[in-house]
Design a protein around this nucleic acid. Structure first.
Length: 102
DNA sequence: CATATGACGTGAC
DNA sequence: AGTCACGCCATAT
């Protein structure tokens, strides 16, 4: 299993209505500190893998994309009940996925 | 083989 | 909250 597949498997576990950060995914997938790989893995993602990529955001609670894709991701998240602040920021306290908790 | 670049994180200011 | 510098690693050229 490649590192990408491991990452995709982890992202697939994020529950509806929750979000996770790149670093968080990296940790759970067993590669702490390699947050960049997560971003790279998602970038290389193909639609066929059915991964909720929109639930992955950066540590500051913001969408790391620019352009048309950003709007799509925001829309998908809002559709799951996740709210954004005026500065396009998500309240991590409320929506970040915690394996133990929910 | 050497460089540049990118869906990032953390710490410092 | 916004910016910078630096660390990390896989791909592309």
């Amino acid at each position: 299993m490649s590192r990408y597949e491991k990452i995709w498997e982890t992202v697939r576990q994020i529950p509806y209505g929750r979000v996770a950060t790149y670093g968080q995914i990296a940790s759970i997938a067993g590669m702490e500190g390699h947050s960049r790989l997560v971003g790279y893995a998602l970038h290389a993602l193909k639609s066929a893998y059915k991964v909720p990529w929109h639930r992955v955001i950066n540590a500051k609670g913001k969408i790391s994309l620019a352009g048309p894709t950003e709007r799509i991701q925001r829309k998908l998240l809002e559709a799951e009940g996740i709210s954004f602040s005026q500065s396009r920021r998500i309240d991590m306290k409320l929506f970040q996925w915690n394996k133990t908790g929910s």
